[in-house]
Design a protein around this nucleic acid. Structure first.
Lengths: 217, 217
DNA sequence: ATATACATTTAGGTTAACCTAAAAATTAAT
DNA sequence: ATTAATTTTTAGGTTAACCTAAATGTATAT
């Protein structure tokens, strides 16, 4: 049906719109690393095909159909990531890159088999929700660590998978899903934070705390 | 490096040359279901790139480099097939089709992981040998069932994966790898054969017997 | 309100596949 | 040794992506 490239556009539009208020030609161009001119063309095509609507300078919005397609790809991506960790013992910083290619060629049958072998997981190895087959998505009540109160104890529910080096570093200091973290001190001058993990204190930058999502315990 | 299409050409040239004495533009065209004109163009390109040599009307031959690439793809294909059966519980008639796409996007790292999880298998679920990383290929001493002597007891070592309906039928009558078969009777008029499996007698056509490879027991 | 900066689109071009139709080359058969 | 049949190649065209450079359109800041 939809080409691999189209699937990529739809997926990334969906993901961008979760963070930013509007998804423009240029923000997509930036994210996909494709020239604005090419993105502009593709947006035109997708609008004609009915998977999104576009108002120039205001941004694009996925139609119901577009959203459905995007969620299907995201489901395959995250199931595959889970599989890579659970069955093939990849590290969580390696999997996004691998799944990037597999999401497009995974048949529905394989999706089912993997879902079954994994026991119908609800989240992927980074804590991102895995959409159900009919596009429903479980939404946890987490907030970014940088907003946590000094003195609070929090539990890690999700770590952004946007940067694989960050994932690697974060696990090297002992952070993983469901880990309990104590917020020792918040530094005003650079917004960094001293946290305790396994009774050791570490100072982590605000770039890191913004990408770790937690809940109170 | 090599595009997905190029990988397909190389793989199929390798496989054709195992069966037929010469691999011509037209036999490749037939096998790949691509027009002779396009195949001709591609052969020219591959010859320039140094993965094969071509003598018009005589056929193509893979160079060492081409052979190496072909064996790498075949290794990935067969490892993946094995994985689909062992881990995801696919049937042996479903896997060739699935592996067809995956062989091209499987990273070397994933190849290693899968090889490890499977315990370094030497054959795939149809009994085809899995080339080693450096292109060595284990060769069993099997012969086609249609050549077996009347009265002989033979062991199934390989079933051709060329036709998925054949694979389905063959397993429905109880044939699987390592099964012992008794050759009851050979019919001269149509070259069919009565064999006994699990103490039941079945008549199978020569099309089938030619695709089952056995050794004496 | 206008200029400047920024965002977007258009125009024209590339590439790797593929295709059909026609031409050319080879093999095979009388 | 021709001719017929077959195989292969060439010529010219398509498509879905992509690109750069240039043109157009919108927003913002004075």
């Amino acid at each position: 049906m939809a080409s691999e490239q189209i699937e990529n556009y739809l997926k990334n539009i969906y993901k961008l719109s979760a963070n930013e208020s509007k998804v423009t030609t240029s923000s997509l161009s930036e994210k996909l690393q494709i020239s604005p001119a090419s993105v502009s063309e593709m947006i035109k095509k997708l609008a004609e095909e009915g998977t999104l609507t576009h108002t120039p300078y205001k941004g694009v919005e996925l139609t119901e159909e577009g959203k459905k397609l995007a969620l299907q790809i995201i489901r395959k991506h995250r199931l595959w990531e889970m599989f890579l960790v659970e069955v093939l013992h990849f590290r969580w910083d390696e999997i996004d890159h691998e799944a990037e290619r597999f999401e497009h060629i995974m048949s529905d049958k394989m999706e089912e088999k993997i879902d079954h072998v994994l026991g119908h997981p609800l989240i992927d190895p980074h804590g991102d929700p895995i959409p159900t087959k009919d596009g429903e998505i479980y939404c946890s009540m987490s907030y970014p660590l940088n907003e946590a109160q000094e003195g609070a104890n929090v539990k890690v529910l999700r770590v952004s998978d946007a940067n694989s080096e960050l994932l690697q570093y974060v696990s090297s200091i002992g952070i993983s899903l469901n880990k309990i973290i104590g917020v020792k001190q918040k530094m005003n001058f650079d917004s960094s934070m001293v946290i305790s993990i396994d009774n050791k204190d570490v100072n982590i930058s605000s770039m890191i705390t913004k990408n770790i999502f937690v809940e109170n315990v």
